[in-house]
Amino acid sequence: MNFTLPVSGVLDVAQTLSVLKVHSLANQEILDLHAASIKRVLRLGGEYYATKLWLSPTEVTVETQTPQRLQSELVDIINSWLGLPQDQLQGYAKLETLDMLKPAVKRFPNLRLIGYPDLFEALMTTILGQQISTSAARTLATRYVQELGERHECGLHVFPDALSTSQNTAEELQQIIRCPLSRAQTVQRVAHWYVHTGQYLAESQEDFLDSLQALKGVGPWTRDYVALRGLRQQSIFLRTDLVVKRALATLGVKQTDPLEIPDGAGSLATVLLWALDTKKN
């Protein structure tokens, strides 16, 4: 099945690919920067389907094994993952009023929040990446996906689900991921919570986030990052994020300086600062 999805406004293809590359796992997806394409195996209706996307400024072309009956579910996943329907005009208009963000607004006029195809993937990727570099997080996630993610006939692995993760002990997960036991315990604890509680709270986002943060090993940054990239909450401004702090320092903003981000523009402000820091480096 082939079809195209429209983009609201303009998709900054280069920046989208740049964001995807930071988190890309070689055993999970094929990211072709030259062709502006990404291939993954997505979970729909309890089954797995190889899906390839070609990005352009105005639309995304989709080639997939997914049957017609599941097309609307696939469209929802892609739209949420890449934020294609996201109208950024209001957010940009609000942020243009902040002098300190004007350089980022001018340099990156067409950014949008890139999330994950699946909420549990956003959750686990965030847990694995707590307090370590993105490259170290990718290494841990690659081991996790290789061992627990089902291998599709196309050769790529599917991101593990919550049940298969929770069925391993923390000690087993530690051996698989090769991480400190405390991190493996958090992975096991969060996966168990998601199976028995979290997935049923997902429609009530604040209840989901409050319940998540009540778990040992989950702090405010994790809550906010999941809210941002997992639940796509537009109001979240990730000021505690290391990269955001670094970008603000580059702009001359001190940690003690007050910041009044306009309501509903927090996620865009975060994305702009991430982009600014990436280009600086």
Rank of each mutant, 00 (worst) to 15 (best):
P262A: 05
L5Q: 09
W54L: 07
G115Q: 05
Y144K: 00
A136H: 10
L17E: 08
V62H: 08
K280T: 12
A227Y: 06
E73D: 15
L128E: 07
V105H: 04
L209F: 03
S267T: 11
M1D: 03
R232W: 02
E47F: 12
A137I: 09
L44D: 01
S182T: 10
K280M: 14
A104P: 14
M124T: 12
K21M: 04
P109M: 07
R138V: 06
L84M: 01
S56C: 00
P117D: 14
L31H: 02
T278L: 13
S235V: 06
Q205N: 05
H152M: 05
K21Q: 15
K254R: 15
L119R: 08
S166C: 07
A136E: 11
M100D: 00
T165D: 08
L156R: 02
W274S: 05
T278I: 13
S133I: 05
E153A: 14
Y92I: 03
P109N: 06
A35L: 13
D224V: 01
L128G: 07
G45C: 09
A170W: 06
N168A: 01
A104C: 14
V13S: 09
R151Q: 15
E206R: 05
R112N: 09
P220D: 04
H192W: 11
A170Y: 05
V60L: 00
L82I: 02
P262I: 10
L42N: 04
H34V: 14
V218Q: 02
L82N: 00
L140A: 12
N27H: 10
D210G: 03
Q86W: 09
V75D: 02
D277H: 15
E150R: 13
C179I: 02
I236K: 07
L276A: 13
E147W: 05
Q28D: 08
L276M: 15
Q130R: 06
P103H: 11
L20V: 03
N27A: 12
Q65S: 12
G45H: 10
R246H: 11
A191T: 01
S133D: 10
A275N: 11
Q205A: 04
Q167F: 01
R239N: 03
S18W: 06
Q174W: 03
I78Y: 07
I132G: 14
Q71R: 15
I114A: 05
V190W: 09
W274M: 12
S37F: 10
T64W: 03
A14V: 13
A26I: 01
V145W: 02
